[in-house]
Write a protein that binds this DNA or RNA. Structure first.
Length: 150
DNA sequence: GCCAACGTTGGC
DNA sequence: GCCAACGTTGGC
């Protein structure tokens, strides 16, 4: 089983939204590296941290499980969606996604500042300067450590 | 709101 | 293939 971290702006979609919905397509990813993780590497049953970016309190807010195999992100075909991609098409779709399912909401946010302050997490891409990747793998030892920080 | 870092586009 | 210009991300 693999572990992941997935970012979302809570103004767009938050951990509370996922808790309410139970399960949701992780749509709108328009970065090839992030897409490749979903399309090529994620497996049903993998676990992921839910991370709030561009929020009052930035950090990890809960966990979820990968709930589907990859499929085409429908928003890329939808002209009314802000994720519409005119350069994609049903014959040559560019963007794939997976569904995620709610697993847990932390009792508090494990903040980015705390993650940065922990020397054992220095290898995480999340805490490195200039990181903008919205989906990234997490090592099992990092996963276990972060769960203990809650 | 600012701005640094990064990814993508497009001219050449 | 290079690289400048541009747009976006995301922390602060």
């Amino acid at each position: 089983m693999a572990y992941w971290l997935m970012k979302s702006e809570p103004d767009v979609y938050s951990i509370d939204d996922l808790e309410r919905d139970g399960r949701e397509p992780w749509d709108g990813i328009r970065n090839y590296q992030a897409r490749n993780f979903m399309r090529d590497e994620m497996k049903v049953g993998d676990k992921a941290f839910f991370y709030h970016s561009n929020a009052d309190t930035v950090g990890i807010v809960g966990t979820m499980t990968i709930a589907s195999t990859p499929y085409d992100d429908p928003t890329q075909f939808d002209k009314k969606s802000k994720y519409f991609d005119a350069k994609s098409g049903k014959d040559k779709p560019r963007w794939q996604l997976v569904d995620v399912a709610f697993e847990s909401k932390f009792s508090r946010v494990v903040t980015l500042a705390e993650l940065k302050a922990n020397p054992k997490l220095a290898d995480m891409r999340l805490v490195q300067k200039g990181n903008r990747l919205s989906i990234m793998p997490v090592a099992k030892k990092e996963w276990d450590l972060i769960l203990k920080m809650v």
